[in-house]
Amino acid sequence: MSDRVVIVTGGSRGIGAATAMLAAERGYGVVVNYTANVAAAEAVCARIHATGGVAVAVRGDVSSEADIDHIFAAADRMGTLAGLVNNAGVVDLAARVEDFDAARLTRMFAINTLGTILCSGRAVKRMSTKHGGKGGGIVNVTSAAAKLGAPGNYVDYAAAKGAVDSFTVGLALEVAGEGIRVNGVRPGIIDTEIHASGGIPGRAAEMAPSVPIPRAGTAEEVARAILWLLSDEASYTTGSVINVTGGRGIAP
């Protein structure tokens, strides 16, 4: 049993995998959540185990309440929940708004927005001092798209992540007196597999020259910001969203 368990949704690849491994390095027991790729999740756990860490791969779709309960039950078996990283997210093929349909939008908001809200509610029930918990931290992984709008590509994704930005502030204020800090990390152009799932596998390399720091970021750079926000070093920080964008999209 661990007295510091963290759930990382979408923990089998990209930012989630980097966050899971860094969390284990910092002494957390880690629930590595995945939706379909069990081999990738087990590989993350194997890397954690190889360095003496504690981790378990747990399947679950954050758009399903039953699956969310399954994820949190696994965390309960590991020990005391101290952190939640709402990282699970999806994009879709680049398209204009007039070409969106309800199925695309339902999936986009169910995973990126509703999943974040529902997972956070389960975490609050466990961590809030109001419910007998010991406090903890929630970090929501949003996107620079929330500020930039992603025209011609993923306006729906940008809108879903904009909702996460608003939710981060609202929940932070709601539970600030209950031992829970809620913050966000807003990645920019990060070199991960998510671009391929949007049909543009070379997007990070193509966009890199337009970034003020002229390169794509790494998943590890985002993970470091997430772990800082979970740590006691950020003990007076809540309701904040940190840009990890290389300077892209930071103008008001």
Rank of each mutant, 00 (worst) to 15 (best):
F109S: 05
Y157G: 06
V54W: 05
L84I: 02
S143G: 12
A20R: 01
A95I: 11
E178A: 14
I213V: 15
G170I: 04
A102Q: 14
K147P: 02
A158N: 01
A41M: 04
G179W: 07
A205E: 15
T19I: 10
I117D: 01
V139G: 04
A146P: 03
G199H: 07
G199C: 07
I117H: 09
G152T: 05
L114S: 12
M207G: 00
A23Q: 04
S2W: 06
T35G: 10
A163S: 15
I68H: 08
A219Q: 05
G11H: 11
G135R: 09
R186N: 13
K161Y: 07
T113M: 13
E206Y: 09
K134W: 02
Y28V: 02
P252F: 05
V30E: 10
N86G: 08
G83K: 01
A110K: 06
L22W: 06
A102S: 14
A216K: 03
D99G: 15
D101I: 09
G83M: 07
G115M: 08
T9S: 15
H49M: 00
A82P: 00
L84D: 06
Y157K: 04
M1I: 09
A103W: 03
A216C: 12
A20P: 01
T142H: 03
I190R: 03
A158Y: 01
G10M: 09
S240P: 01
G137H: 03
A24N: 07
G29L: 04
A158T: 03
A234R: 04
V244F: 08
E233S: 14
G132H: 07
T129Y: 06
R59S: 13
T168V: 12
G149I: 05
L114H: 08
K147H: 14
V244N: 09
S120V: 09
I15N: 11
M78H: 05
A158M: 06
H131G: 03
N37P: 03
A57W: 01
A225N: 09
G249T: 08
D76Q: 13
